[in-house]
């Protein structure tokens, strides 16, 4: 299965890449990591939990996206990931 890539590297946005993984792993690169790294990680964990997803690697390249945008981008990525997984 190909990685799922969603979002953009524009200011206030983020690019999220999902790849299959045995367990949940999260990598965050953010221009606001020092100030908001924990908050970003929390949104990602909550969103994964909400969708009951436990077997992906989440790679976030963040350009200062607010929580709602990270949540929406990840939700979109998860939907695509699921439909790709169903097809294959």
């Amino acid at each position: 299965m190909k990685p799922i890539v969603v979002g953009s590297l524009e200011s206030s946005d983020c690019l999220i890449t999902l790849t299959p993984s045995k367990t949940t792993t999260i990598t965050i690169e953010s221009i606001v990591y020092d100030a908001f790294g924990d908050a970003i990680e929390q949104v990602i964990k909550q969103t994964l939990k909400h969708h009951g997803l436990h077997d992906v690697h989440v790679y976030v390249q963040d350009k200062g996206a607010l929580d709602y945008a990270i949540e929406a981008r990840l939700t979109s990525a998860i939907k695509r990931y699921r439909s790709e997984a169903d097809e294959s």
Partner: peptide
């Protein structure tokens, strides 16, 4: 309100 409160700086 938009950004959340920043973590303490280093």
């Amino acid at each position: 309100h938009y950004t959340g409160s920043p973590q303490k700086t280093q």
